[in-house]
């Protein structure tokens, strides 16, 4: 048995090494052949990937710990942008002068976080209390899909379905080695790095992190050791809301556009990134998000905008066929967890 485990272990490492070096070689080749234009694309890709990876981490946390695909994530993302825009437009924030855009975004994040806690209260906790084991059923999944549609349509009712301009005062670009890098791009990458570092610190080093990992492996063990599982679950939804809000704020600052549908594309790309990296693995979500971002900008550049979905989902299919658990996935998935 140990020998068998060793073989799969080595195979996994080989697959990861193969993917890793293929990606690096592709990047190096691209920069070598395409020079600055490509380097510029890589920077845009990483920036986009930074946003995908934050959302992918939100997905993977809920799946890893609760075994529950939280479909409200795209709508939390969208809520942040639309609420921020509405706050800015309402003139309520005029007292804050040139910082009102930042306060508006902060307000958006708060609303998304509160919405996420509402979802926990009325999908997850409700069904757990009523039926015992919430995840054995598809109910939380379906009801979170319901929340997605409700949030989207509420926003459309209130603000219409057009996309809106969200003005941000970043005029200056940095010029480094002949590359033009927008300040929002740098902010995105740095924030993503900070989020990742903070999350892995919390999961690895803190009491609540150990409790979350124990719940992820086996909620019953966690409960035997004194963890009130029902009290930890809201923490996850809080994190989900904050992560989606942050990602949406970064997106809004980078593109200056918000719409009631802005979450849909991000949501599907983040799911692709999460599956690519291995469901339930934080590092998988990070790498997967970056790969999807890079793949997107590269295929736009080389094959045109219509190719993006084909290339990303094609890549995903190939990875799933070669390594069904994704690049970093682990075995403890698919069980009812709570």
């Amino acid at each position: 048995m140990a020998a068998a485990a060793d073989v799969t272990f080595q195979r996994n490492i080989l697959i990861k090494a193969a993917f890793g070096s293929a990606a690096l070689i592709a990047l190096a080749l691209a920069v070598f052949l395409g020079g600055h234009v490509i380097a510029q694309q890589i920077i845009s890709g990483l920036m986009l990937g930074a946003i995908y990876l934050i959302v992918a981490v939100a997905f993977t946390l809920t799946i890893g710990v609760l075994n529950f695909l939280n479909f409200t994530i795209p709508s939390l993302f969208m809520l942040t942008g639309m609420i921020a825009w509405a706050l800015l437009k309402s003139g309520l924030l005029s007292f804050s002068g040139s910082w009102s855009w930042l306060i508006a975004l902060f307000g958006g994040v708060v609303v998304a976080t509160v919405a996420s806690l509402l979802v926990e209260r009325f999908t997850y906790r409700y069904f757990k209390a009523k039926h015992g084991d919430a995840t054995e059923h598809a109910i939380p999944l379906v009801s979170s899909l319901g929340f997605l549609l409700i949030f989207e349509n509420l926003v459309i009712l209130a603000f219409g379905s057009e996309s809106q301009r969200f003005p941000v005062p970043f005029k200056a670009d940095l010029h480094l080695f002949g590359l033009v890098i927008g300040i929002p791009q740098i902010v995105s990458l740095v924030s993503a790095l900070i989020v990742v570092a903070a999350l892995s610190y919390v999961l690895k080093q803190t009491k609540i992190g150990r409790a979350l990992r124990t719940i992820a492996e086996n909620p019953e063990i966690a409960s035997l050791l004194g963890v009130e599982v029902t009290q930890v679950v809201p923490v996850l939804f809080l994190l989900t809301g904050m992560l989606c809000g942050l990602a949406a704020a970064l997106f809004t600052v980078n593109y200056g556009d918000v719409s009631p549908f802005m979450g849909d594309n991000i949501g599907t790309k983040a799911i692709a990134g999460m599956v690519l990296g291995g469901i339930g693995s934080i590092w998988g979500a990070i790498i997967g998000g970056l790969i999807v971002g890079l793949t997107e900008t590269m295929s736009v550049h080389f094959l045109g905008g219509d190719s993006v979905e084909m290339v990303i989902w094609g890549l995903l299919l190939i990875v799933i066929i070669v390594a069904p658990r994704g690049l970093f996935g682990h075995a403890a998935l698919g069980k009812g967890k709570l």
Binding site: R213, T214, E217
Partner: peptide, 19 residues
């Protein structure tokens, strides 16, 4: 037995003192 196999030995003991 039901120990948490994805945690280290030390982390398992720390979880024992969670309360």
């Amino acid at each position: 037995r039901q120990i948490a196999i994805s945690l280290t030995v030390h982390e398992n003991l720390q979880m024992g003192a969670y309360c």
